[in-house]
Design a protein around this nucleic acid. Sequence first.
DNA 1: TTGTTAAATTAACAATGTTAAGTATATTGA
DNA 2: TCAATATACTTAACATTGTTAATTTAACAA
Lengths: 210, 210
Amino acid sequence: MPPKPKTENERQQLRTLIIDAARDLFVSRGVEAVTMREIAKRIGYSATSIYLHFADKEAVLRAICDTDFLALANALKDIMQIADPVERMIALGQGYAEFALSHPNHYRLMFMAARTPYDPAQLTLQQHSAEQDAYFQLKTVVSNVYAAARFRYDLQDVDLIAQTIWAGVHGVCSLQITMACDKWVNWSDISERLELMQAVLIRGLLREAL
Amino acid sequence: MPPKPKTENERQQLRTLIIDAARDLFVSRGVEAVTMREIAKRIGYSATSIYLHFADKEAVLRAICDTDFLALANALKDIMQIADPVERMIALGQGYAEFALSHPNHYRLMFMAARTPYDPAQLTLQQHSAEQDAYFQLKTVVSNVYAAARFRYDLQDVDLIAQTIWAGVHGVCSLQITMACDKWVNWSDISERLELMQAVLIRGLLREAL
DNA sequence: TTGTTAAATTAACAATGTTAAGTATATTGA
DNA sequence: TCAATATACTTAACATTGTTAATTTAACAA
């Protein structure tokens, strides 16, 4: 109702209002199933108003992901305080999985959805975005473990190691999220699967058993 | 043009015609981006004709997946001839990954897409569908390795082991498919990542190094 | 008071999945 | 042989969607 020039602060506030409403709906019913009109109604605006703040639906999704990557990084921050590097590494995987499994639709948006790559112009900006923080945390921990000379002798590439750990945990989580409802697999308990994956990673990567 | 009663065979033929056209388009441009009219035009029919053979778009997608699960199982069939069970297991992971990475959009449909679960009535029918074949193959190989007493002493659950291997390979592949374009990860070569994952799985699961 | 500008809305569009209604042809039954 | 029926298909039509254009409303500046 009030068409008066808004401060940057007010604009930002409305932006996050949109983001929060959209996330709520996206997460509970899937991106495709949610309409712009619905998001707008939720916050008491008309659908077209969203376009004053976001270029299109995809841009809303992208904004959600950006803030959520930050949230994940924050959730993992405490874990980074653990003293022993190997323990820290294990706990990080555990924390990551907990995030994934307790916010499956969330996780789907962030790590499983087909994303049209950002336009190249943004690629440099993105270099140090929140998005990379969680990965950076993992890489840091892996570096620590490497520095402590705990990895097998033949493992020299910190990125490669980090990506393998990520793939292992992500594999368990994403399979659970997508396929858990398929009864033709006699699924073991998810916590057992996660535990075995962690054990396999540890045994496969570290110099000797924990 | 020719409205004469069709034999069951002819009907089946048209069904696969639709499936093949749809898959082609889905795989190259994504499910959401492809319209029913487009699929129809591709095979020279009107859009509504598709509905004479499939309930809706989702049903077309499901039919595609069904035939493709079978194709995957077939692609893996040769590998099952390898004599040594451990080698067979490794080759199976490799074959699976090759399928995933050379048909990424395909793979996305099969193992990464949010699927509305089949209606419960079909659950029993599904029990022995093509869909489970690839998993069954994996489980068989794992059983063989288990029978050969090659797994670690504390690993007793064949399903759990199979699911962990699956998760590992799937993790590498799905991360590659979804995130490879994200430059904030300094991605190692995909074949290196796959190789390390396989090595980790082997070292983590088997009684002793290969 | 009167422009001007920003924020919002309503109207309008083209495209989509899907359903309903219509058309043509081959088989059937008399 | 000829109506009747059923089948394969098409065209029309609909409601819904993301999005753009045109319009309204209200605050500030002159």
